[in-house]
Amino acid sequence: MQILNGSGVNKAFGGRKAVDNVDFHVDENEILGLIGPNGAGKTTLFNLISGAIKADSGTITYKGRVISGMKPYRICHMGLARTFQKAKNFPDMTVRENVLMGAVFGKKGTDNAAAERKTDEILSFVGLEDFRDKSPGDIALALQKRVEVARALATSPDVLMLDEVMAGLNPTEVGEAMELISKIRGSGVTIIMIEHVMKAIMSLCDRIIVLHHGQKIEEGTPEHISNSKTVIDVYLGE
């Protein structure tokens, strides 16, 4: 079943097409990878889906409802959450308070007690209990990114968009992040991830979309992608 679907999505900045007539879909409970060279339009596509920016044309539907043009907070309330490439944690709140904000505002009609419970649940789910009272600025990058993921998870999403959660992590941390991502999928959440760490993409994703200069140049299973001549030419090869 398709949970998210985009057709003919376009976005230009000035004269440059950042996302050029892209069609995509995401199946329920899959992990979809989004790869491509820097500037390929991956983050722009995330911004279009999450409502941070508006598409010039094209439609994005989520659970059968058109979400293109909606405000980010409404899209979040509908169950679509995201993280940012550069972690945007709230600096003057503790780790726990950061996650709590997601739980308080993420779903309409969550009372305080439920939000508190949800927060503690998420903190232990992602393994941040030991850092709950720390400031997000005082912990390692891998943990900071984990706080972002936890805050997004606290909004109770059905679809979670992860923007390079592994960038800047060492191999051990990448392994831990991979474990976390499979665990999140295991809990029934659909995942779209942008990533440059090929090992992670190839072993986690059910399907991969390759973007280049804003265009979708290839789509398929990890095996298909790693054997595709187009992809090798523009991205992996040279």
């Binding site: 980010p72 907070y73 979040c76 940012f84 709140m93 505002f105 997004a152």
Partner: peptide, 22 residues
């Protein structure tokens, strides 16, 4: 909650918008 929302906006408006704050 209104006050909390304001605090979130001060600490990072983009993030605030994406965790459900109008």
């Amino acid at each position: 909650r209104f006050g909390l929302a304001l605090k979130c906006i001060a600490e990072g408006e983009d993030a605030a918008m994406h965790i459900g704050i109008g």
